[in-house]
Write a protein that binds this DNA or RNA. Sequence first.
DNA 1: ACCCCTTTGAAGTGT
DNA 2: ACACTTCAAAGGGGT
Length: 623
Amino acid sequence: MWRERSDHVQLKTHSRNDNNKKQKPTRTQLLLRLFLPINASSAVAKMPQLNGGGGDDLGANDEMISFKDEGEQEEKISENVSAERDLDDVKSSLVNESENNSSSSDSEQAERRPQTRAHSESYEKTRDYFSEALRRQQDGGFFKSPHYPGYPFLMIPDLTNPYLSNGSLSPTARTYLQMKWPLLDVPGSAALKDSRSPTPGHLSNKVPVVQHGHHVHPLTPLITYSNEHFSPGTPPSHLSPEILDPKTGIPRTPHPSELSPYYPLSPGAVGSIAHPLSWFMQQQGQPMYSIPPGGFRHPYPALAMNASMSSLVSSRFSPHMVTPPPHSLHQTGIPHPAIVSPAIKQEPGSDNISPSMHAKSPVPPKKEEDKKPHIKKPLNAFMLYMKEMRAKVVAECTLKESAAINQILGRRWHSLSREEQAKYYELARKERQLHSQLYPGWSARDNYGKRKKRKRDNKADSKPEDFSIRNKKQCVQYLPSEKMCDSPASSHGSMLDSPATPSAALASPAAPAATHSEQAQPLSLTTKPEGRMHHHFSLPGKASGSSSSSSSSSSSSSQPTISVPLASSGSHPSTPILTRPIPFTSLHHSMLSPPSPFHQAALHSHHALFQSQPLSLVTKPTE
DNA sequence: ACCCCTTTGAAGTGT
DNA sequence: ACACTTCAAAGGGGT
């Protein structure tokens, strides 16, 4: 089984896991079980393009979202359910699944009594909840309103630019203020801090602490651009063309889409590093990414950076012309999150001069080699999701280990509805786009080798023995690999797919909403070697072979998805409605694995959901 | 202090 | 074209 698991999904990541799968569960793992939230479902959907994106090359236009089944466990339950519901579901799941209810209660209680957590986390929770509430109110946000209303949030890292990986930005500093979905987390920067917030930003870096989102008025999501909260001074009314958020009353930018929320503005960073576009902004008056509190004078131009600008920017933020004041947000300078000043990290001593210096230097490229700032990769959809949800998950679960949290997040991710995921994909796409505009010459390759290389394990090297050795710390499967967690969902889940959601359509207005069939397109089911495949059912149709993940190449679709052949291409008429493409894996699971008790339980818990939801997938190519 | 672990996705490299 | 590798975030845990 374990093999299968890996197979289903992308190998890339899993190879390692394979090795690990056999490992014994650790404490954490056990713990995790309790919390295991959701079952993932698998399904594949074609990414709706939110914005028609017109030419967004960057993003894969038609991204398929694959809901991979992680393992057997996954199950998915209703995809339809909104994210919010997901949470609830998760909670429910937790309750059911967890042996001890405490956890379950946690989640809920968390909402109610965030204070339980001694620290800031509580704040986080609150904030999260608020945000969530807000989100709900606003509606799924992204899709309904302006296309990217979602971008309303601005992440502000605490002191450091999130994208700065450099050490100077300590991880701690790094904490972004999370941009929580609609909510903007305000970083700890004093300026940003809500006066109300008790927690000193500097106190903690960790998300909980650092992020003040919670401190911020819950409704401040849009703050991003608004400045009230964080702007030390004047709210840049001009900042945005401002559209006040009706609810919050906070002005927000009209073209969120253009802005990348993800390039958080870090106060500290700002101070230290000018935003790559700062100069641009000044000139243009439009802040590309975040809006500095006081800084921006002009309304957003909508991003549109033209080529010329891009080129300017291209030098990796070289264009910093402005030297930001050391403290707090510089009015003008906004560091690009993605940029890490080499000076900071790499050559702390010498150059430390402050990034500002670098920024100033018109000649960015020189020394690039040495000093080339480290520009981080743009975050992908999942990463964005993680950022947003991590705190929440942490709050709900007592687990703190990121590995465990990430597993949960991965599952949740799979459980997200198409729409939900679409939001993130869209954001990610925007992010990439923006990133490319900012750093035209940048290549992911630039960062290769920067990170300390770690285990390159993976299969390749891994010889059987290696596993054991390699993994000193064995990889823990935090989540139960077995069906424990699984829910019926895997089978059901996929089936439950949300009704074909319009989301796609919503999501991508421009893009032709993928029709069902379209969505289902066979993607890349790249077949993986039989080895992998063999476990899977061969589905009829091209897909049949397909497989697993298409981890495939990213470039275009990148989404490793598998669409169920059934529906997909030809969508068999006979095929039942496939609301959403189903990942091969899911099918696989569904078929293969009989509902375990867990599934049952899960199913049960989700019963409500199911009821309403039409099962979309039906096909079972049984074999 | 540093690296690992873990997740998904994007993009790179290698075959 | 496909498979595989890196890196992105995060933070507890291990060495």
